[in-house]
Amino acid sequence: MLRYTEDHEWLRAEGEEVVVGITAHAAEQLGDVVFIELPEVGREVTKGEEIVVIESVKAASEITAPLAGTITAVNDAVEADPGSVNSDAAAAWFFRIKPTEPDLTGFMDEAAYQAMIG
């Protein structure tokens, strides 16, 4: 089941890891994405730390780490083709993180997220 942050990230638990991307709603708000910079694999991050840079045709924005933990993989394909975030945000994952506390219950579910974006 997908979980969501208030910063429009989607989170998908896979074993001990969590896969993170941004929602289609966020991608639509950003406009055409032209540049993405992902964190280094192995980096230890704290919750709320800015770890991804997204540049759209309009502006730069940052994606924060939804949880504290270690980055275990990043999606090089999305760096090479930033437009894939606009065409399929659900498939265009950014990074995998191994959280120090793998508990996603505090995040919004689909219904709560849909209610938030109205």
Binding site: D32, V34, V57
Partner: peptide, 8 residues
Amino acid sequence: VQYPMGVL
């Protein structure tokens, strides 16, 4: 600022 076609 843009239409559904998008800036690009």
